[in-house]
Design a protein around this nucleic acid. Structure first.
Lengths: 243, 243
DNA sequence: GTCAGTATTCTAGTATACAAGTTGAAGGAT
DNA sequence: ATCCTTCAACTTGTATACTAGAATACTGAC
């Protein structure tokens, strides 16, 4: 993207939730979708909060057409719920859905780790080493946003090593619901260091091309996130519902 | 993509794909989506075929607004591809995507079968027995549409037995790409009887509450679908692309 | 004060009009 | 004949207007 003369294309919009700027050369719907999704996942727009399409129009300075596209997509992601003629609301975090997402993610990523070990090369080791370094760096700096991205890159790298990168997009859609509480959990430094330690165990198994070992390490790693819920749920009880 | 002979593929809606009647009391967008999705999955609208929003408007007798919602959803399902200011086309079946979907589906359903065996009850056995009877009945009658639904119900029942019914929706979205060729494959009677036999092996393991056995049986079952591609691909070579 | 009925004002769904961009063929110049 | 320019006919993206239904607040009767 050309960053030289963006100024003319930027349209600012002051809002209750912040200031959003849109690049008029890119599809508005896509940008609105990404922004809203980010706001919801990071809980800056809280669960159960009402969303008005017209208000969003004002926030971004666009008409309802692109806003509706974005809102429809978010509804399909399960992040918001639309009640015709009544209103649209940010979905609460459903505990049953969390369990199901956890199950699905574990099944997919354990299988990916197993397959990745079969195709692991020295080049993958090099790549993952750089990634792990960044994880440590960002964790120590308390940069939870960057750590989140590092974490994503780590798991995606494993999918790529398995020559099944497309499966990662499936994992992403499944774990969307987890990201909402993940952003909160990553604020705890002890937790991030724990995660990094588990990542290193996985890498060790991958590097020694041990499929079963990698699968087991991944299973352990993903099981530990369960504890995150147990810790967070009482802190934000109003965000969660059973079903 | 070759855009030079698009004109040859543009066919008046009324003669090519019929005119669809809509229930005006239900949301138009949802109905358009379901109809179009069905047409694409059953290959009545062939891969690479051009889709014009305006033409669809004519087919259903609605404006572009609900059509756009439907088209956008189909694009997210990966069934169609939108090229801004150029056109919208039914996506070709990507072999790499098929492999990835197969991997993901297998990982999910094997894990589901394993979990289902742990929670299997006599009532589940009763339900699945009725379902298997219908499979045999519809297979013998050559009713591929009903057999497809039976098959879906069978796998969904296993997810429900695992107390993880929500995971089934993930499986569904992943296997959408498979359904497109599945509808063709189910026309072969020998193939359906083979599938039923494999289903029975799975049920046996589930009924004896044998998690590892159920997982293995499911794995075998889902692996056999690979053969379906090998058989179908040469018959519809123009529907497939590597990536 | 209480309650029924009504009106206003929200909402999402749909229809229509316009804007921006691409394609491919027609037509003239070389 | 070949190349270049131009233009008309599409395409999707966006903006606006209108419809129908639901919730709420208000008004009037009792």
């Amino acid at each position: 993207m050309n960053l030289t003369n963006i100024d003319a294309r930027i349209i600012p919009a002051a809002t209750a939730h912040g200031v959003f700027a849109l690049d008029r050369h890119l599809p508005a719907a896509e940008q609105v979708y990404r922004q809203l999704r980010n706001e919801i996942i990071t809980c800056r727009i809280a669960p159960n909060e009402a969303i008005s399409e017209n208000r969003i129009c004002g926030m971004f300075g666009v008409s309802r057409s692109p806003v509706r596209v974005a809102v429809t997509r978010l509804a399909e992601d399960g992040l918001i719920e639309i009640f015709p003629q009544r209103g649209t609301f940010v979905a609460a975090i459903k505990l049953k859905q969390l369990r199901e997402a956890q199950f699905a993610r574990s099944a997919l990523e354990v299988a990916l780790a197993e397959e990745a070990a079969r195709h692991w090369t020295e080049q993958h080791s090099d790549e993952v080493r750089i990634n792990l370094d960044q994880q440590v760096q960002h964790a120590r700096a308390g940069d939870s946003r960057s750590f989140f991205l590092d974490n994503e890159a780590f798991h995606q790298l494993i999918a790529r090593a398995a020559k099944l990168e497309g499966v990662w997009t499936t994992v992403q859609s499944v774990k969307t619901i987890w990201d909402r509480i993940g952003h909160l959990a990553n604020r705890v430094p002890a937790h991030t260091l724990e995660i990094i330690a588990e990542h290193k165990v996985i890498v060790q198994a991958l590097a020694s091309q041990n499929p079963k070992g990698a699968a087991a390490a991944m299973k352990t790693h993903l099981r530990s996130v369960d504890h995150a819920i147990a810790r967070l749920q009482p802190l934000h009880a109003d965000y969660f519902v059973e079903e």
